[in-house]
């Protein structure tokens, strides 16, 4: 996964050079990629740095709820697949931090922002994984929602981000199919397994629908990102696309969605759905989801417990450099 539209505010554009800005916009309008050494407006740089780093943070935090089931995966095939999936997420985090670094912020700085609570990550990972079916639901719904968000990002105007997204989307679509296959197996299994699948859908459906961010009427900040061709579709359009694709998949395996207003609209050819509880969304984003504190505590613990290892690696590298330099001098 895992981007989430986080209602990114546009940065005020510093009074820049109008000629450079016009040239930049013409480049973007022509669907050409902006590369790290190209001139870009400060607001573009800041918006992208924030979006890409939030996306990277989401990958890293997202390793925790799924990692929670690696040791308990019910078969060796599932265990290997889940381990590989969580490892893919770490890999996505790595490409994304690298893409963000091309904009001038180091991975250490971005990490610091995550651990201090300054940077956000996708709020979906503040929900707990309580049963094995949650691993299926995350793959099917959360990765499914992420793909809807991310496919348009493969065409993002910023080259390094767009290229990272192409590879990420390929892996995500594999994860999504794998998640759906877990759900299908459970839904067709024993009554207890089916109940487990239904319970997971009940808990993950609305948070997944919320992953697309606030409704277009609330989100006033996407004009600039649309003009810069960072964003291509509105939150509501993407959300509708996700619901239209996902509902028939759920029905096909005999599961019900926890939305009494969900029905197919013959006129629009889309699924109508009920009111989203935006109070919950805001509460979880603000830090009061079921696992916000736990996730950050685990991330900080990994960082703190690993400090001596990172320090040792640096100290060793320096000793080696010094020894090599000394050997070179001795040889001369």
């Amino acid at each position: 996964m895992y981007t989430q539209a986080l209602n990114v505010k546009d940065e005020p554009t510093a009074a820049g050079d109008p000629v450079l800005e016009a040239r930049f916009q013409a480049h973007v309008d022509a669907e050409l990629k902006i590369e790290p050494n190209d001139w870009m407006p400060e607001g573009y740089r800041k918006t992208l740095t924030r979006q890409i780093s939030q996306h990277a943070h989401s990958e890293i935090v997202g390793m925790l709820p799924e990692g929670n089931w690696i040791t308990r995966a019910p078969t060796l095939r599932r265990k290997a697949a889940l381990l590989a999936k969580v490892q893919d997420e770490g890999g996505h985090g790595l490409y994304l931090y690298s893409a963000a670094e091309t904009l001038g912020t180091s991975r250490e700085q971005m990490f610091e922002q995550l651990l201090s609570g300054k940077a956000k990550y996708s709020s979906i990972f503040n929900y707990p994984t309580l049963t094995w079916a949650d691993i299926g639901a995350i793959g099917w719904l959360v990765d499914g929602a992420a793909i809807m968000n991310q496919i348009p990002l493969c065409r993002c105007s910023y080259g390094p981000y767009a290229r990272a997204m192409i590879r990420i989307c390929k892996e995500e679509s594999f994860h999504q199919r794998q998640g759906y296959e877990i759900m299908m197996t459970l839904a067709r299994g024993t009554p207890e397994q089916k109940a487990m699948a239904q319970d997971a859908l009940n808990r993950w459906w609305w948070p997944s629908v919320m992953m697309f961010g606030p409704s277009d009427t609330e989100s006033q900040h996407s004009d600039q990102t649309m003009r810069w061709k960072i964003k291509r579709f509105s939150n509501d359009d993407l959300r509708q696309k996700f619901i239209d694709a996902t509902v028939p998949q759920g029905h096909f395996i005999g599961l019900e969605f926890p939305d009494k207003d969900l029905k197919f609209n013959q006129e629009t050819q889309h699924w109508d759905f009920g009111e989203i509880d935006w109070t919950e969304f805001k509460r979880v984003i603000a830090g009061d989801g079921p696992c916000n504190k736990q996730r950050m505590k685990q991330r900080r613990a990994a960082h703190d417990n690993g400090r001596w290892v990172r320090e040792a690696a640096l100290a060793y590298a320096e000793k080696r450099r010094n020894r090599e330099a000394a050997a070179k001098i001795a040889a001369e």
């Binding site: 890293i60 390793m63 925790l64 990692g67 690696i70 381990l83 969580v86 490892q87 770490g90 985090g93 790595l94 931090y97 685990q298 613990a301 990994a302 417990n305 690993g306 400090r307 290892v309 990172r310």
Partner: peptide
């Protein structure tokens, strides 16, 4: 996984 000293 998820708890190691560095992403790598």
């Amino acid at each position: 996984i998820g708890h190691s000293p560095a992403l790598e």
